[in-house]
Computed example of a mutant assay.
Amino acid sequence: MNYRKLGKSGLWVSEIALGNWITHGAQVDDTTAQACVHAALDCGITTFDTADVYSETRAESVLGVSLKGIRREGIELCTKVFHPTGSGYNDKGLSRKHIVEACHASLQRLQTDYIDVYYAHRFDATTPLEETFLALSDLVRQGKVLYVGVGEWTAEQIKLGAALAKELKVPFIASQPQYSMLWRVIEAEVMPACEREGIGQVVWSPLAQGILSGKYAPDKPLPEGSRASTTAGSPFFERLAGQWLRKEVLQAVERIRPIAEKCGLTLPQLSIAWVLQNQQVSSAIIGASKPEQVKENVKAAGVSLDPEVMGQINHILNNVVELDPSKTG
């Protein structure tokens, strides 16, 4: 495993982080989830990513149990706030009330005294930004949060947040957007904005919801037990993975497989390594439903891809890549 600084901060994170969106507390049993976490630790992963909303708060609880007994100073534990975790009007968003209450609940579920990076999971247009950052500032002062990040914020939102963070002396160091060979909407505006502010990227879905795993072949049924088959029909899935289940996309992905083989990599390893070639990316989040997936995908850490390889990939995917910055968030 290799490690990188998160933005221009002093915090080191593992190049590959383990996330538990969709899987832990939902698709896999707790014993398997714990085995995935322990496999990650054995492979040198120190950065773990979750959110209060994942699996209706169960994902945080599973991660807390899985990390019990692990030296706290040796890991970076990250979670998020924004989405509803209850039925009340104040059980969502980035109000002071929700942020403070959600943070305390996350700490309890994670069985820890502090969160390394606390993300504003989405932008809240209904709450004054000053209120949000003042609440985060207080949590930092109290030692319950060490650093602050945002998820899927636009370049302008990041700029406004960074100005407030400087005024309030809040260590705003991370952005967590979707990023992969296929989804590159952050390259035009978000990445330049973050670079100016010293904010690093911790990217999610480097395998484009599993499309870059190579499991899905053109004109063939969805593989039994795959993410596409188990989550098909949900609006969220249709908006994410559903957009890639087109013949021209799957054909282009198949053409990348020989490139991966020439590099001595699997298609998933090449896809993760591609993301990590961008030096603004501090860490790429992988998911896993079994320990073997963790052990295989961490082999993407430290891989250096030749410019010729990067050029071949860009040429093949040219007509199917999403670049529109307006689709951020």
Rank of each mutant, 00 (worst) to 15 (best):
L168S: 08
K169V: 01
K169F: 06
P171A: 13
F172H: 12
I173K: 15
S175G: 11
Q176M: 12
S180K: 13
M181S: 07
R184M: 03
E187P: 02
E187Q: 14
A188P: 00
V190R: 15
V190L: 14
M191K: 15
M191E: 12
M191I: 10
P192L: 14
A193F: 07
C194L: 14
E195A: 15
R196M: 11
E197G: 03
E197N: 12
G198S: 14
G200I: 02
G200K: 15
V202N: 12
V202Y: 07
V202P: 03
W204T: 01
I211C: 05
L212Y: 06
S213I: 01
G214H: 09
K215P: 00
K215Y: 02
K215Q: 09
Y216I: 01
A217T: 05
A217K: 15
P218A: 13
D219W: 11
P221E: 08
L222M: 03
L222W: 04
P223Y: 07
P223S: 05
E224R: 09
S226H: 09
R227C: 01
A228I: 00
S229D: 07
T230V: 05
A232Q: 13
A232C: 08
A232D: 03
A232N: 13
G233D: 03
S234D: 08
P235W: 03
P235R: 13
F236H: 12
F236N: 11
F237Q: 11
E238Q: 13
R239I: 00
A241Y: 03
G242F: 06
L245C: 05
R246L: 01
R246W: 01
K247G: 01
K247Q: 10
V249Q: 04
L250K: 02
Q251P: 00
A252G: 08
E254G: 06
R255D: 02
I256F: 03
I256E: 03
